[in-house]
């Protein structure tokens, strides 16, 4: 079962995230439980694979907002990085960034169980 302590261990700034949730722990944990299934993760991967950088930017942008609101720093940071590269529409290999994101996402999934 997901706990605040486990999220802290994972590296999330839980105090910050909880404040946005009016310090309602159950509510915070419920939202974190939902974010791993956010369709923007797939949207980002697909868009990068299709070299549609506009769509990739939008997906990353959405993710950044949600992850930031939940203060899930370990996933937020790589998403932020890829977002800035996509903002400049840089023609580079995005695979390593996607890999980090998906690893961190898998880690969080593990925590949720």
């Amino acid at each position: 079962m997901l706990t605040i302590d486990a999220l802290k261990q994972f590296g999330a700034d839980t105090n910050d995230g909880l404040t946005r949730c009016m310090n309602n722990e159950a509510f915070y944990l419920k939202l974190v439980g939902k974010v791993v299934d956010d369709k923007s993760f797939e949207a980002l991967e697909n868009a990068v694979a299709e070299k549609n950088l506009d769509a990739a930017f939008e997906a990353a942008h959405s993710l950044k907002g949600v992850l930031g609101n939940l203060s899930l720093t370990p996933i937020y940071e790589p998403v932020y990085e890829i977002l800035e590269l996509l903002r400049a529409r840089k023609d580079i290999d995005y695979a390593p960034y996607l890999k980090t994101i998906s690893e961190k996402r898998a880690e969080l999934k593990e925590l949720i169980g």
Partner: peptide
């Protein structure tokens, strides 16, 4: 907002 989490969070506030 198209993100469920953002909507829920604001509603809760």
């Amino acid at each position: 907002d198209d993100e469920y989490i953002n909507r829920e969070m604001l509603e809760n506030v």
